[in-house]
């Protein structure tokens, strides 16, 4: 249980796909113009990641090494198409506002990267933990970026007006350069935080050694 929890934690913070591994960025920058898109994209992505990892991990012994890539793509594409249909059927508004980015989950590097680096080598349970960690790690960063961009760029949160009516939205944040800026600030903050936590830990270790 402890092991699975550690795997899960990796994706949320220490190996966060967006902030630490820096993969899957295009869609992350493109859909984060409002919070509902961020949540929708994050959950769709988590769904595809979860099921692709489970299937590939379960069948990893029968997937020959030489043709693993095409098989990964078949599995990922199948689940992406499934989530695309489901969203069109039951969440038409969300599906419309995210447009082409749902089908483009197929070529999201996070999924290909995790399937290749993790689930082709590990057991099903580890894969469930890894995909949930990575998926939620991706989702929370999307939502956080989207919240800032939507609030400053449009004066709303998840479509609800929160800024006073006199607030003149800063369009810059809704456009791509604003996305880059907010995202870069997130990465810098994360690296700064990591440095501080690292130092604190190192300090603690020294104290422990001294005590010993």
């Amino acid at each position: 249980m402890k092991r699975l929890w550690n795997v899960f934690k990796q994706g949320i913070i220490y190996e966060n796909p967006l902030l630490m591994l820096l993969i899957g960025l295009c869609s992350a920058l493109a859909v984060t113009t409002n919070v509902s898109n961020g949540i929708g994209m994050g959950l769709a992505m988590t769904f595809v990641l979860l099921f692709s990892e489970i299937i590939i991990s379960a069948f990893r012994k029968v997937i020959p090494n030489s043709i693993r890539m095409p098989i990964f793509i078949i599995v990922i594409a199948a689940f992406t198409t499934i989530i695309d249909y489901v969203m069109q059927a039951y969440f038409p508004e969300l599906s419309k506002s995210m447009g082409v980015f749902i089908p483009l989950i197929v070529v999201n590097c996070i999924i290909m990267g995790r399937v290749e680096a993790f689930s082709y080598k590990k057991g099903v349970l580890d894969c469930v933990a890894d995909s949930l960690g990575m998926g939620l790690g991706y989702t929370w960063v999307l939502v956080a970026i989207a919240a800032i961009r939507e609030l400053l760029g449009n004066g709303t949160f998840a479509g609800i007006q929160v800024m006073p009516a006199s607030y003149q939205p800063i369009l810059f944040f809704t456009l791509s350069p604003g996305g880059f800026l907010v995202f870069a600030l997130f990465i810098s903050f994360n690296i700064w935080l990591k440095g501080r936590v690292g130092k604190a830990r190192a300090g603690r270790d020294i104290v422990k050694e001294d005590a010993a």
Binding site: N34, K96, G99, G153, N154, L171, T174, L175
Partner: peptide, 9 residues
């Protein structure tokens, strides 16, 4: 009915 232009613009 459908448009995919820049949000906010």
């Amino acid at each position: 009915l459908a448009i995919s232009d820049t949000p906010g613009l």
